[in-house]
Structures are given as structure tokens and as C-alpha cells.
Design a protein around this nucleic acid. Sequence first.
RNA 1: GGUCCCAUCGUCUAACGGUUAGGACAGGUGGUUUUCAAUCACCUAAUCGGGGUUCGAUUCCCCGUGGGACCGCCA
Length: 464
Amino acid sequence: MSLVATRFAPSPTGPLHIGGIRTALFNWLFSKNNKGKFYLRIEDTDKERSKDKYKDQIIESLKWIGIDHDDKEFIQSENINNHKEIAEKLLKNGFAYKCYCSEDEIKEQKENAKKKGIPFVYNRKWRNPEGLEVPKDIKPVTRFKSKISGDNSIEDLVQGKINISNSTLEDFIIQRKDLTPTYQLSAVVDDHEMNITHVIRGDDHKINTFKQKQIYEALNWKLPYFAHIPLIHSESGSKLSKRDNASTIDDYIKMGIMSDALRNYLLRLGWSYKDKEIFTLNESIELFNLKGVGKSPSKLDITRILSLNEHYIKNIDEEKLLKLLKTYSSNFKKEIDDNKNKQIIKSIKFLKNKAKTLEDIYQNAQYILKDDIEISSEYLKLLDDSSKAILKDFTLDFEKIIQINKENLEIIIKKLIEKNKTNFKGVGQPLRIALTGSKFGPGIYDIILSLDKNEVLKRLKKIN
RNA sequence: GGUCCCAUCGUCUAACGGUUAGGACAGGUGGUUUUCAAUCACCUAAUCGGGGUUCGAUUCCCCGUGGGACCGCCA
């Protein structure tokens, strides 16, 4: 058994959002840093909302960002018999009891509490069933016999010591009326069976910890370490939810964000190491620790993601960038034909300098990717007679060039500028429009040099 | 409402109780430039408020204020 084991335990009730990805990342990083294990557990005990397609999507998302789990993923519902057995054991040993309250009764208690402005805590009616008659028409739930008095505390690896008064904890349900176990029970049983040593999760689970701790104690099981990391907030300032826009991994992939960039962004969101901003995967494994995790929630900042992405686009190996671009294009745009590879590699040096996303590269490479350049009427208007004359002159000179390079092109263009008493723009803009169909894009020399000579001539002649 | 947690530039964050409170992103100004960019130089910008403790608080304590999480037969 290894010293450290962590797990990521999402419920497959929707696509993973990046808060979840970050939790997974921190767990993964922590276990890698400690040369331990990292497991994935699919918490699918809510049968109505759990979907296989989400399970697959979650696994895909993790894989995309570079997180791999040890062993096969653990499916919580497959362990349901064990959960039930433990519930029985708790019942038998007096740590839990059957509660025959009807749903209406509970509802009434809740409304009363609301009216009085006091917090709702189930009134523990069936904790002591003496003198109560068991109703025949009600299937009972199983409740855990929570401590009523005293204080309780946990030593959290991120939050420090957290105290709570036991009186605020209710006798929570561990088994539904259909006898299926609830989260509080299943999570504890599975964490125990999987020998999880460190539970790293969002701090929305903080209160659960006190409930779960009591289950551990009742069973005489060793309590794992807990680390509750602060949540990621949306721009609006509240907990990131599945309903927020652009918060799933797929949304970022679609935007043309690369996994390294997102990984780096998520790493630095809530965690820091001195002044360091850029971390390779290996660096992040070596340097990650729980001490560096802050306590306050952080806001999602898309410009930061973009700027990190820009950094990675500029620094990644060009062959790899081409591969990513092609994957991106075939997934979300138009497939890039292999016969364009050589040309793109040649151009990627300057294309990547003006891109924040893969989509930007794709857009700026349109003049290469499209065999037929279309010029919108708006731009066509810019090509007046004098511009056309310049293009014609350029064509004549260009045809004569034997060795096409920047120096030779400069000579021609300089000559044209002088002859027409204009500036570089006077020559550059018509050329750009003729060759790319756009006013924006890479430098003129870059464009010409990256196109085949015949292709340049073809495009120029089409204008005149 | 109850319980718990949090609080440094707009954002992400540094700072053994002693720093001109640092960095990054964004923003601004200027240089370079054929468009858009990129790039280079420089600049703006923060310790939530009030009390303590201390020779000295961003840092420790208390109160307030603000924000968040939880309060499901969801996980």
C-alpha cells in the first residue's frame, strides 16, 4: 500500500466544470508529489440523474488536461451492497436508527422552523422510539445518531482548525426509504475501502466532514486527512455551477484553449509558489503542496486564461502546435488537408505571434487553407483603378523574380512606392486584399513567401 | 435566519511582526512597425473599518462591515 492515496469523486450528473477539474488537478498533483495513488470514483448513486454519457465526458475531460487515474475507475453504485451492510452494522450497534416520519411530517417541521426563524434540525423523534407506534404504511429511512452535545473539530490541511458545535448537526439520513445509501455513507465507506489517505475537495463539503467524521468514529475507522479548498467563483461572485456559461472544459476546448494553458491557469488559481507563474507539468508535480493553497475563493478570469494560452502557443514546439491546430480544426472547423502541412509549418512562426487561441491561428491561416480567395464587396471597393494598376505592375515584376526572398520583394515594392508616389500601405493593402481577401493578417512578405509563386500569380491575375 | 469560512492593486497572488507592500494579467503612455498584432521602455493601481497586543502590525487578538459556503431521502 502506498503512503498517499487521493481520489476525485464527481457525480456523473452533468459535464465537469473547471472547478471540478481544478479539484481533480489538486488531488492528482498532491498524490504525484507524494509518489502516491490517485483514483477516480464515479459517484452515481443518484440513479435518476446519473448518465453514462457524463461519466464518459468526465473521463475524457480529465484525460484532455493530462490527468490519469490509477486502476480502473471506481463505480460507486457497484459497491452498494457494502454500503448497505455497513448501514446494517451501524443500526445493529446502535449508531443509527429507523425513522418513520412521513415526508409531510418533516415538511411541517421545516416550515415551523422557518416560521420561528430557527434552523431546521430534524427533531430526532424516532431516536428513542419508546412508546411510539410504528406506522405500517411508511417505509422508514435510516438516520445516523449524531452527537447532540459538545464541540467537534477537524484539523484541515488548508483551512486549519475548524470548530463546530454538535448541536447544529442533525441526525442525517444514511439510507433512503428504498434502502439505497446516501452520499454521506457511501463516500465514507468507499474512501475507507479505497484506503484514501487525503480527501481534497471543495470547501462546500466542510460541514459534511463533521457528519462523516462521526461515521468513521462509529466504525472505528481511521480518519483520513481533509483539505478543503476554496471554491472558484464566477465573474458574478458566486459558486461556479453547471449552469454558468463557458465553465465546462468543452467550452474552453472549443475556444481553442490548450490543455497546458488551462492546467497552468487552474494550478495558479488558489495556489501559488513564490512569484512563479509558468509551470511545466513536471514542475507543478514537484512544487505542489497544500501549504500553498489559499483560503479565500478566487474569481474566474478569462483574460488570464487567454494570456496563458498565448504564452503556450508562442512557446510550444511547432510540430506539436500544428497537430493541435489540426485536431482543433477537424473537431470544430473544417478539416485541414495533409497537403497543407508543409505550408502551415512554414507559416506557423508568424501566425502564432498574433494568436491567443487555436481559433485565431485558424482564422489567420485562412489564406493558406482556402484555395479560392473570396473578396467581399467592401474590400473589393478598396481596390480602385490605381490600386489595380499597382497590382499589375507588381505582377509583372514578380513574375520575373527567379529567387523569391524578402530582399527581392523589397526591391520591387520600393520601386512601386516611388513610382506611384505613395507609401508602403499604398502598395501593401491592395496586395493583402488580393492575396488574402482581408485587410488584416500576417505581414505582406510573410504572406507572399508562404505561398507558392504560381499561387501568388493566380490570385493577382484574378483581380485584373 | 442559524452554523462555518474568508478579506492585500480591477483580477490571480507574494511579503520569519521590521520591505519605498513585490510579481503576473488587464489598463495607460511612448518607441519600433505595412494592417491587426507582437515586441521594448515606462506609468497608474491594494493591505475593508474600528479597537487592542507590541518599540513596531498586511501579518497576532476582539468587534463591526462586506463576501461566500452549508442548512436535500443531491453529491
